[in-house]
Every structure is written in structure tokens, then in C-alpha cells.
Amino acid sequence: MSEIIENAKTNEAPAILEIYNLSKSYGDKSAVADLSFTVHAGELCAFIGHNGAGKTTTLKCVAGILSFDGGHIRVDGVSLEDDALEVKRRIAYIPDNPDLYDFMTGMQYLNFIADVFGVSEDLRRERIEKYSAALSLTEGEIGSLISSYSHGMKQKLALISAFLHDPKLILLDEPFVGLDPKASHVLKEIMRDFCTAGGAILFSTHILEVAEKLCDKVAIIKGGTLVTFGSMEEVKGNSSLEDVFLDMEDDEDDD
């Protein structure tokens, strides 16, 4: 594990997300144990594991929603333990099933998020127009109550809100669930562009083909422990990510 941290430290791009020895338990049950990895600026990192492996717990810990029992998390050089508020200013977090405010319209919600991050009217207008057009969310839809949205529309709105304040790190939990094929395609482009511009993304997914084609790095977690982490090429070698993942599952089962 210390090798991973050393490799991350020698990477030329600045580290955006650093997780060291993260541990989190729910009562007697360990959800995440001694987890360490780093994501640098410009990197798109997939976070893979079976259901209950600890992906969402890790993402929630990084987002400052869950307290953790041990370890350290730094975002853009800021320690989460020392200044959680500053960390939150630098990230955007979209949960797997975004429970947005049903009583607001889409625009009211975006205004609320932009107000929280202090985004100027001009900037928010520009970004709302850009991302809503890209994700095919019409003005009428954005002006409607969120309670009338489908799951996919909520997902799109949550994604627009994530880009409003130009964060350094975006945490996405299953971002492609509920999106139509076109929106999925656009989202991949947006994610790629965001990282090219110097941002970093950590996202969990069960769609291994997407992870394989889209990501620079991959972290595979099982039973709360990091099984493997590295560049996509290092991890999958000549086989597919799906084969690697399934082999790891089989190996663990044999053990």
C-alpha cells in the first residue's frame, strides 16, 4: 500500500484527492478498512466493486457526509479533518439516487446551489445554459417542479448543479443510472472535458465497459479493502476490465 502512495506522490500533476488508511465501521461491521489511493488533477478514476463493497461509504466519507474512524482524507491539499467546509467548497458530490428538493423547481434548485457556492449570476446563467443544453433539459423542464421529474431528469439536474461552481473534484455515485443513451454519451464527454481542464473525477460504476473506455485509473474494492489500484493499462493488461474484475471475485471466493 505504501507503494501506491509513493507512486502517487511522484506523479507530476498535483494530487486532488488523497485517501490514506481510511477506515469506517457501522457498529461491529467494518465497511471500509485501511483504504489508500490518490487521484491527480486531470484523472478520471473509476471506483469498482460489488454491492456492499464500500464504494458509497468511501464517497460519502470524502464528501464529508460520513465521519470515519481512522485515516486521513485531503482534497486539493486541504485536510478534511481540519477544514471540512473548505473541502466541501472544492468538491461536488452526486449520490446514486439524488434526493433533490421536490418542492422546488429545477431553476430554484440550481439557484440555491449556486447561492451556497457564491456563483455570480452571469456565471451560473452561462453554465446552466451550457450543461442543460448538453444534457437536453429544456427551459420548460428546468422551470417545472422537481416532484414532476423522472429519475433521469433528476440525475441530469443534479449533474448540472455539480458543475455550477467549477469544483476541483467531482464524486459521482453511479452517474449513468437512469440516463438515456444520448445523455450518457454527453456526460462521458463532459467528464472527459472536465478532467482535461485540470479537474479530477472519482465515480463508482457497475458498467465496466464504460469504466474501461473512459477512465485513466481504476480502483477495485472488495469487502471494504482496496484490491487493486492503478492506471487502466496496469490493472487490465491485455485482458478486459470485466475479466480482471471477475477473476478477482473468483480468486477471493476460492480463498
Binding site: 423547481t105 431553476m107 451556497v116 457564491g118 427551459e139 420548460g140 422551470g143 417545472s144 421529474y149 423522472s150
Partner: peptide, 20 residues
């Protein structure tokens, strides 16, 4: 349940954190 497509165009408007 109702459909979302009939809403009016929303207005971009900034406010202070407290007021928001």
C-alpha cells in the same frame, strides 16, 4: 403525478447564502 414539460422558464437570480 404530473408531467414536467409545461413549466415556465426559470429565472437565474443570485441571493446571499442566508436568504437562500
Amino acid at each position: 403525478k404530473s408531467l414536467a414539460s409545461k413549466g415556465k422558464k426559470g429565472v437565474v437570480k443570485a441571493a446571499s447564502l442566508r436568504f437562500s
